[in-house]
Design a protein around this nucleic acid. Structure first.
Length: 413
RNA sequence: GGGAGAGUUCCCGAGUGGCCAAAGGGGGCAGACUGUAAAUCUGUUGCUUGUCAGCUUCGGUGGUUCGAAUCCGCCCUCUCCCA
């Protein structure tokens, strides 16, 4: 375990995590002098965590290693409402069942980064207290402390005031603030962490506790993961990059980081890996073509944290095999096809569909017309091409789509 | 509660009875150039189909019409003004 002597605040700052703090000096002081219980909330609005959550988990991990106690707050209650912060559109409402299922998935993924054994970290669900709230009581006890005028001036509501904000979402801040109060009372939690879009909500909680309890607690936000172009990171054409291997395979996950823009590599190393700063410094000297080596390190490290060392190695070998020489193909994405399915042969378009490389045959025709499909390294120029067992070498066949998408087809008995 | 508007393909946004699978931009995909980068240029971007063509789409639903994204009724959602 880490020692309190090493101040995790400095580490976070050095690595570029911190966006805003309620009281920088004080936070630094307590993090260096005592065991602090802190919390971060996660609303289970999808059935897997994604890269944005991952950054928060890394922070929690840094904190835990430094000897502090994390509380993971699952937003089983707040997810019923929907956080308007940073969103331009109204949230879709989730059912109770969906939320419970999602929360289960979250738990599994989080335990990879946070040690929940022996009470070293706690997981709670705000549904446990929010769902049973009495409306009038809540208004009288909590609602009185909030000024609508002030809330309306909060940055996080600005865009929503133009586009529309329903009353239910407007209440989100009160609920999150109440969570903090509750955790302060029950666990002596004195620090709330979150993405920078949570700043207003965190302030709400800090203010509430001061008013109700007369005590000072703290809040700190972290920069959102964005690309050098200011776009949210962790999005692909297919949607978010998920931590669930069923939704984003370790190979795809690895490739996402392997293909990151030059300008973002060092930032990602600092934020998403635990590599020591000295080493990152060294890597930041790499320029031009050499920067590819840094990208490999980034992809490997991040994949290792999320999917484990073994999967990271497989992903790396697969990528190397496909893009360079060496490594083995065994771990590249693949589809199996049986001899009976293959029969006397299968049309190239059907094969592409089977492998999930195209969403429709029209798309496949277009790709072939434009020269974007290769079978075993040969460009395909006939959309009626039949693939037969002759095309398989040792029951394997390699399809390439565009420059980077590789897929193996394995012929089984 | 009263009044005025709006809902278009992944997103923004044009389209006000046939020439609309629907302009333009963004994004995506592919090609060229590269370093599995960026920028740039080119092509492409509903489904089925070798071509012709056919099919499904413009908030929902029911009409009018030879023919509707476009007109009419009802419903849903959102925005604005008044209370």
């Amino acid at each position: 375990m880490g020692k309190l002597s090493r101040n995790v605040f400095d580490v976070l700052k050095e690595r570029g995590f911190i966006a805003q703090t309620t009281n920088e000096e004080k936070i630094r002081e307590i993090l260096g002098s005592q065991k602090v219980t802190f919390y971060t909330g996660f609303d289970p609005t999808a059935d897997s965590l994604h890269v944005g959550h991952f950054l928060q988990l890394i922070v929690m991990s840094h904190m835990q290693k430094a000897g502090h106690r994390p509380i993971v707050l699952l937003g089983g209650g707040t997810a019923m409402v929907g956080d308007p912060s940073g969103k331009t559109d109204m949230r879709k409402m989730l059912t109770h069942e969906e939320i419970t299922h999602n929360a289960e998935q979250f738990k599994k993924q989080m335990s990879k980064l946070i040690d929940f054994s022996d009470g070293k970290a706690i997981m709670v669900n705000n549904g446990d207290w929010l769902l049973e709230l009495k409306y009038i009581e809540f208004l009288r006890d909590i609602g009185v402390h909030f000024s609508v005028n002030r809330m309306l001036t909060a940055e996080c509501f600005k865009s929503r005031l133009e586009r529309g904000l329903s009353f239910i979402e407007f209440n989100y801040m009160l609920m999150q603030s109440y969570d903090y109060l509750k955790l302060f009372q029950d666990y002596n939690c004195v620090l709330e962490l979150g993405g920078d879009d949570q700043w207003s909500n965190i302030l709400g909680g800090v203010d509430l506790i001061r008013r109700v309890k007369g005590e000072e607690v703290y809040g700190m936000t972290f920069c959102l993961l964005t690309t050098s172009e200011g776009k949210k990171m962790g999005k692909t054409e297919k949607g978010a990059v998920w931590l669930d291997p069923e939704k984003t395979s370790p190979y795809e996950f690895y490739q996402y980081w392997r293909n990151i823009h030059d300008a973002d590599v060092i930032k990602c190393l600092k934020l998403l890996t635990f590599l020591p700063m000295e080493e990152i410094e060294k890597l930041s000297q790499y320029k031009d073509e050499k920067i590819n080596e840094v990208k490999e390190i980034l992809a490997y490290e991040v994949t290792k944290i999320v999917h484990g060392e073994e999967e990271a190695q497989k992903a790396q070998q697969a990528a190397r095999a496909l893009f360079a020489k060496g490594g083995d193909f065994d771990h590249a994405p693949s589809t199996e096809i049986s001899r009976s399915e293959l029969g006397d042969g299968i049309g190239i378009l059907d094969l592409l569909m089977l492998a999930g490389l195209i969403p429709s045959k029209g798309e496949g025709r277009r790709l072939i017309k434009q020269g974007g499909i290769y079978i075993n390294g040969e460009r395909v120029d006939d959309q009626n091409l039949m693939i037969t067992s002759q095309d398989f070498t040792e029951n394997h066949l390699l399809i390439r789509k565009g420059k980077k998408v590789y897929h193996r087809v394995i012929l089984s008995k």
